[in-house]
């Protein structure tokens, strides 16, 4: 279970201080499918990044299974990202010179898993997202939807408990977008993986169990 207590985060933009999050309280239960919506600059991504351990809050607590991850050292926090969280990005962020299989193996490398085991697990993940026949392809040889599937496979590689998807359908047409959301739903339903989706798209948000809206750094 993830619990945020009075989490705040602000950025300095020139002379202005931007309050990206302003005392946010949130509980995400295991197996939840949560959609976070809100206008641009409302603090959605900051919230997701703090939950994912990519960013540190200025104030408040982020409790993951009752442990405050905002106080962890780099090694433990990296380990948390590696084993507990999977990230899916709007722009996929795949290594252009790596094949689909090699891209999926990246989190496994940092987990210290052997080469043979890495290949086996990465292949299983690609199979799970329907890309068994595209393993040796470079990202440039894949369509947008396929790239996002590789991205999901990479997020799945270390069997995470939570997948954080930041605008996963933002760069895809509606059909491909639906397919991606379908995969995420399936992972949530069958794999019992907690899904946190940040989206502008109401049709994506509708698929979630729960939707929260953020405005000016607060849950409204």
């Amino acid at each position: 279970m993830i619990e945020l207590k009075s989490v705040s985060k602000s950025y300095q933009m020139g002379d202005d201080t931007i309050h990206a999050l302003d005392g946010v309280d949130l509980v995400v239960k295991d197996g939840d499918f949560l959609a976070i919506t809100g206008p641009s600059g409302s603090g959605k991504s900051t919230l997701a990044n703090i939950i994912g351990g990519l960013d540190e809050p200025d104030g408040g607590k982020v409790l993951v299974n009752e442990q405050d991850i905002s106080k962890l050292d780099d090694k433990t926090l990296s380990n948390y990202r590696n084993h507990e969280i999977g990230f899916v990005f709007q722009t996929f962020n795949l290594q252009p010179t790596y094949t689909a299989l090699e891209n999926v193996m990246i989190p496994l490398i940092f987990a210290g898993i052997s080469s043979a085991e890495r290949k086996k697990r990465a292949a299983e993940c690609l199979k799970a997202v329907g890309l068994a026949d595209r393993m040796a392809h470079l990202p440039s040889q894949l369509s947008g939807g396929q790239r996002q599937r590789v991205c999901i496979a990479r997020a799945l590689a270390n069997n995470p408990k939570v997948i954080i998807a930041d605008e996963p359908t933002g760069n895809l047409d509606s059909k491909k977008g639906e397919e991606i959301v379908g995969i995420l739903k399936e992972l949530n339903r069958q794999g019992k993986i907690t899904i946190i989706v940040i989206t502008h798209d109401p049709s994506v948000a509708r698929q979630a169990h729960r939707v929260i809206n953020i405005k000016d750094g607060r849950i409204s």
């Binding site: 990202r81 990230f87 962020n93 990246i106 940092f110 987990a111």
Partner: peptide
């Protein structure tokens, strides 16, 4: 830079 961000998101430590 972006690749470093991805590696960090995938669990790479600063020392990695």
């Amino acid at each position: 830079t972006k690749e470093i961000g991805v590696m960090r998101a995938c669990g790479a430590t600063k020392s990695n």
